[in-house]
């Protein structure tokens, strides 16, 4: 990243206010590591605005928040100046362990069985969904459709082939109300269309949010969406 020394305070301010484009923001963060002047300018800017973040009423802290943080701490002990412990190394792309293949084959088999069951069920059912949500990705492309029957079942049809890494899964969420927050409707087995048996929820409403996120295999560990959003959309009742 090239910048004039005289622009340092301005870059620092816009960085601290969060006004930079993500790519520029990343460049500033990288430049800060080698440019002491930029580091000092950012520190000065932070201190100027910090009072806005210190005088406010603290929010009540849920008792389990610390437990969740502590449970997620890497177990290895950090040493001063050492590279901090990071997550497990990424599996190599040609991880051809027979066991992994067997697991994949088995889960594919289970997925196709589930799909067969789902299809039979959908061919024989007469109930209509209460709402239908068309889910779009960030570019506005249609990715999936969720039909919520309001009887603890919902059907998700994927309209795009998602690449789901072996250690990940697609999870379906809805937001019945702000108070309840997002609730999981279930996992999409093997990234195929599926019928989900969700929890008992209030009747789905018009404009209720549905979304798909990519979570670690087995689903989000926190019970809330944590991974990137693949698609989302608001529900409409069919006419």
């Amino acid at each position: 990243m090239r910048y004039d020394r005289k622009d340092l305070p301005e870059i620092a301010d816009e960085y601290v206010l969060g006004l930079l484009e993500p790519a520029v923001q990343a460049e500033v963060e990288a430049a800060m590591e080698r440019d002491a002047d930029l580091r000092v300018a950012v520190a000065a800017s932070r201190e100027r605005f910090l009072p806005l973040d210190t005088g406010l009423e603290p929010a009540p802290v849920a008792a389990e928040l610390w437990a969740r943080i502590e449970a997620a701490l890497p177990s290895a002990q950090a040493v001063p100046g050492a590279v901090p412990p990071t997550a497990a190394p990424l599996p190599s792309s040609n991880d051809n362990h027979p066991r992994a293949w067997r697991a994949t084959a088995l889960s594919a088999l289970v997925a196709s069985l589930l799909l067969a069951v789902g299809l039979t069920w959908s061919l024989t059912r007469t109930t209509e969904p209460l709402v239908i949500a068309v889910l779009l990705d960030g570019t506005g492309e249609v990715q999936a459709v969720v039909e919520d029957f309001g009887n603890d079942t919902a059907k998700v049809r994927l309209l795009n082939a998602f690449t789901v890494p072996a250690d990940k899964t697609i999870q379906v969420w809805t937001l019945p109300s702000r108070e309840m927050g997002p609730v999981s409707l279930g996992l999409v087995p093997g990234s195929r269309s599926a019928v989900l048996d969700g929890p008992s929820l209030p009747k789905p409403r018009r404009d209720q949010l549905y979304e798909l996120t990519l979570e670690q295999a087995g689903g989000s560990p926190t019970g809330r969406p944590t991974g990137p959003i693949l698609a989302k959309g608001f529900a409409k009742p069919p006419l």
């Binding site: 580091r39 201190e47 210190t54 950090a78």
Partner: peptide
């Protein structure tokens, strides 16, 4: 937790 070793006072106050 993982970045605490990177904190130095030239990055501003700890808060």
């Amino acid at each position: 937790w993982t970045s605490a070793h990177q904190y130095t006072p030239d990055r501003g106050s700890a808060r």
